[in-house]
Design a protein around this nucleic acid. Structure first.
Lengths: 228, 228
DNA sequence: CCAAAAGTGTTGTGGTTACACCCATGA
DNA sequence: TCATGGGTGTAACCACAACACTTTTGG
């Protein structure tokens, strides 16, 4: 029973990673369909008895072998009726973050050709995927300012300069090191690991870890994460 | 061609209005389907060659005769596979605002039974619609703080106390009259009409109008609306 | 003249911004 | 000892919060 309409439902994933001081997006080359020679977002059709989020995870696994650290629904693209030349396809886009460990893509499985592209070197994409990525970037920019999702783009243990760099990259403006540090430490959501990392020359930097349980505790007491 | 799955795509609308110092939601009693005696959100299946937003407007027109002033996509509900007992239905929920003029529902057309319900007197709803409304309220609460959408819930010309009341109702806490006024006027997005309204006894209040073009101009210069 | 709602300023304070020097390490 | 990146404090400023009396109307 399909209630008289004939619309196909797909999911697409915009997976961001952070490497070389740049945001990277995960793209694939579809094995079939009208855009076989184009790069496209990972994704595919939802199965009849599959939840949307499950469909995204499955497609990501099948096409790229990746398991993401953060996944949220972004937007459903369905106003433009001919966004897929074959038939009417409505696509629910999901927005995902992975930490740098996952940057190395396993070329195994039945994975399609998959690669990371820096945001400023995106190719022409299939369908309306360039637009979808724009929407995803906007969401990332605004969400990173009031939710601690930036940590999902870093290793579990990180140094302050990485966090700062990440914010500068995403927000696109400079941040004062002292003020940033003061503010973030003031939140009380980071734990010192006691370890240090030296990066070539220079004074070794303290390694921190994002303390999820402290964050949740504070959050439930009315604390609001915010970084401008 | 349906690409092997058999999922129906629906839209639902959460339409808010503001009356009697309360937020109201528009509900209908479906003419068909498994929940004929329950109240439900207006909505229905998307047609094969119809954009999502168009589908929402059409359903609202058909079921309630209403044309909304503000409409944005809220969330797509599709993780719970059996949210509709008949078959797999994924629903794209839209969030809408109407001004008080539209509170009077025309009982004409082929409109189903439609009524406004204050938020604190919601009945048990069909499907997962109670959950959808919760999500919509959260969105309203947060969005009204950083976008000037509150004006869509008021008449074109309004007095300050109405705006203030609206914010207090939605945010659920008191607001200092003087600070609120100072802040909002400081934005420079309101125009005095020069007219006054007297509400029974008491000093007549100045009527204001939201100046969309001034708002857009400021916005493009980096201005951010914000009310806590 | 009394009740009811609208309109209005000032002061304190807490948070954000701006800014420059010392520290620890590797080469 | 030099180059490199890490770590730290203070003062000015601004936005927000708190707070009470006067004005204008209707009854």
């Amino acid at each position: 029973m399909n209630f008289e309409s004939n619309i196909s439902l797909a999911v697409d994933a915009i997976v961001f990673a952070y490497a070389n001081s740049k945001l990277q997006v995960l793209l694939i080359q579809p094995k079939s369909g009208p855009f076989q020679n184009n790069w496209a977002l990972p994704g595919g059709f939802v199965k009849t008895n599959e939840g949307l989020k499950d469909a995204v995870r499955r497609e990501l696994q099948e096409e790229t072998g990746i398991q993401v650290d953060y996944l949220e629904q972004l937007y459903t693209f369905g106003d433009q009726v001919d966004r897929d030349p074959r038939t009417r396809v409505v696509s629910v886009a999901y927005f995902a973050l992975v930490n740098p460990k996952k940057l190395v893509l396993k070329a195994d499985t039945d994975a399609a050709k998959a690669e990371w592209f820096p945001l400023d070197e995106l190719p022409q994409l299939a369908y309306d995927h360039n637009i979808i990525i724009k929407v995803a970037i906007d969401r990332l920019k605004s969400k990173i300012q009031y939710q601690p999702i930036g940590f999902d783009l870093l290793n579990k243990e990180f140094v302050f300069s990485e966090l700062e760099q990440l914010y500068m990259t995403i927000l696109g403006h400079d941040i004062d090191r002292r003020n940033f540090r003061k503010k973030v430490l003031g939140f009380g959501i980071l734990t010192e690991t006691g370890k240090f990392r030296s990066e070539g020359s220079g004074r070794p930097a303290k390694l921190y870890r994002f303390n999820v349980s402290k964050y949740r505790a504070l959050e439930s007491k009315g604390f609001h994460f915010e970084i401008k």
